[in-house]
């Protein structure tokens, strides 16, 4: 089966600093991949390159065989940034609705999806609340709902557990597994190794702008990935 995402020899410079060094990566359909690495490893630069938010110096990124600079490549993906920010005068419902409409939903289909996703993420009671009055966790869940309503095949989440309490983290993990079982492909950029190990299929360890290893979580027993990651990064320091 063709990869959903193919990153081929991508390099990126910020002035003289090389943020990405010939990065190669591919994402299998219907899987959850975690991109992990210490701060400054180049994870956000890679994610932003994939989404066409920043340009890269050399290489190629294909999403469903479409070049990432072509806006059509984004038809099949949705993105949640690390800090979900939206206009604070919008309500939670208005925000999710805006995202739904931007992905072509309307009428009863949109209403039904808002209803279903808000129930799934436990934010049904918040629908009429303005974003300006939402807590960090509530905002993050609104962001996740806004992304999931798109019904995109591939979902990119940058630090999705940031700001969530343990209950919300558990609910989000369950939701992501459910979406994977529905045939979605999920790409997560996260620091929280303990959480991603439990539900992701694959990992890519990034350090100093390079992908130093890609593998499957199935080879680790519970809790051992954290030590493995630490040793790998230390060895690559």
């Amino acid at each position: 089966m063709d990869a959903i995402l193919e990153v081929k020899d991508v390099s990126k410079f910020y002035g003289s600093f090389q943020a990405l060094k010939s990065v190669n990566l591919s994402l299998k359909p219907n899987s959850i991949m975690a991109l992990v690495g210490p701060n400054g490893a180049g994870k956000t630069s890679l994610l932003k390159s994939i989404l066409g938010l920043v340009s890269f110096s050399s290489g190629e990124i294909l999403i469903n065989q479409i070049d990432c600079h072509d806006y059509n490549s984004r038809k099949s993906l949705a993105y949640l940034p690390e800090k979900f920010i939206f206009y604070d005068y919008y309500t939670v419902k208005g925000t999710i609705s805006f995202f739904g409409q931007m992905y072509g939903l309307s009428g009863s289909e949109l209403s039904e999806k808002i209803d279903a996703i808000s129930s799934e993420l436990g934010i049904k009671d918040l629908l009429n609340k303005k974003l300006s009055t939402c807590s960090k966790g509530q905002l993050q869940r609104t962001g996740i709902a806004s992304v999931l309503i798109s019904d995109s095949d591939t979902i990119f989440l940058d630090e999705p557990f940031s700001g969530l309490d343990p209950v919300a983290i558990k609910e989000l993990k369950d939701t992501l597994i459910k979406y994977k079982n529905k045939g979605k492909t999920i790409f997560i950029n996260s620091h929280i190794l303990g959480e991603i190990e439990k539900f992701c299929d694959e990992y890519a360890i990034m350090n100093h702008g390079e992908i130093i290893e890609v593998g499957e979580f199935s080879k680790f027993q519970d809790g051992t990935f954290e030590d493995y990651f630490y040793n790998k990064v230390k060895a690559n320091a």
């Binding site: 932003k48 989404l51 066409g52 938010l53 806006y71 059509n72 984004r74 038809k75 949705a78 993105y79 940034p81 800090k83 979900f84 920010i85 939206f86 206009y87 931007m102 992905y103």
Partner: peptide, 15 residues
Amino acid sequence: RSGIVSQLVSFPIPR
């Protein structure tokens, strides 16, 4: 300034 722009341009529309 708010950073909302990266969210908006990641929708499938040309800039």
